[in-house]
């Protein structure tokens, strides 16, 4: 039993990483209706910016805020320059655009900061949390930040004018335009917010996985899986999905014989698909009804 609780705790700790990333994935999905394959790379690039600022002697929190602002502006710029012209192009062409963006960001980060692994500081320290060896104060801090972000987003979407406008623009663009919402800028705003949330995820993940251009590869896959499991239309579902995927993955690695590190990912994905076969819109997603 102790092994079980320990593994669940460890799963929650890794799950916090996935939850953070899944939140960013859901944000962009809400705004533009696509999964952004370059999201992980964008987060990685932001994290490198904050690292560079700290190398130049800026304090952690100042660098954190500056990176947040940079990511927000960069997200909007990417939407305006690269993806707005593609708004009328077929969906699959947009997906190809994300893959192109992925290649561009990954390769430029490699050229600017090279592929060596870098240490990244944590503001929470890395001593054991409440005497538990499995969760460090950093991981506890990460869970805390994720929950705060979730609450913040909830209030933003539920109780602010602009949050309401964004929801309207995402769900029924035509009607939203009729009541005077600038839907095109709402999409840009969605990109900005998703990129900023992604950068927070990146800066929290970097102390755990270390900083390098390919750091997000694995994390993004789990982030997608978590977002899909929780239901792509629900930020709350994304966070729950993230923790579930983390726990799934750890328990599969511990209890199913013959599952090494290599088979953890396929098994976690297989479990998620089994869930999806039973609940096709994810655990907390709304079922979309089509008009014939």
């Amino acid at each position: 039993m102790e092994l079980f609780t320990n593994q669940v705790l460890a799963g929650i700790a890794t799950g916090a990483i996935y939850a953070c990333m899944a939140l960013a994935v859901v944000m962009i999905y809400q705004a533009i209706d696509h999964l952004n394959f370059a999201q992980g790379e964008m987060a990685m690039f932001s994290t490198f910016i904050s690292w560079q600022l700290m190398q130049w002697g800026v304090s952690y929190w100042a660098a954190f805020l500056m990176t947040l602002a940079f990511s927000f502006v960069a997200g909007i710029a990417i939407e305006r320059i690269l993806f707005k012209p593609l708004a009328k192009a077929p969906v699959l062409t947009n997906v190809a655009g994300f893959i192109a963006l992925f290649a561009i960001i990954n390769s430029s980060a490699g050229l600017i900061w090279d592929f060596t692994i870098k240490q990244y500081p944590t503001p929470f320290g890395s001593s054991p949390f409440l005497g538990s060896q499995l969760i460090s104060t950093h991981q506890a801090g990460m869970i805390g930040v994720t929950v705060l972000l979730l609450l913040g987003l909830y209030f933003f979407f539920q109780y602010t004018r602009i949050g309401l406008a964004m929801r309207a623009a995402a769900s029924v663009p035509e009607s939203a335009r009729l009541v005077g919402i600038n839907t095109s800028w709402m999409i840009a705003l969605g990109w900005g917010m998703a990129t900023a949330i992604g950068s927070i995820a990146g800066m929290l993940i970097a102390p755990v996985v270390f900083l390098e251009p390919n750091m997000m590869g694995g994390v993004l896959i789990y982030g997608f899986a978590a977002a899909v499991l929780g239901g792509l239309s629900s930020p709350f579902g994304a966070v729950v999905g993230g923790f579930l995927v983390g726990v799934f993955e750890n328990l599969a690695g511990t209890y199913i014989p013959g599952v090494g590190n290599e088979l953890k990912l396929p098994i976690a994905l297989a479990l998620i698909i089994s869930v999806l076969v039973v609940k096709p819109a994810g655990l907390f997603g709304r079922h979309i009804v089509k008009r014939v």
């Binding site: 690269l82 593609l86 009328k88 077929p90 062409t93 893959i99 290649a103 561009i104 390769s107 430029s108």
Partner: peptide, 22 residues
């Protein structure tokens, strides 16, 4: 050599801008 990924991405972008339907 160093930026091959970025060059590939830019070329891909060019293609999908010019001919979004391939």
């Amino acid at each position: 050599k160093g930026l091959s990924g970025a060059v590939f991405g830019v070329l891909l972008f060019l293609v999908i801008y010019l001919v979004p339907h391939g």
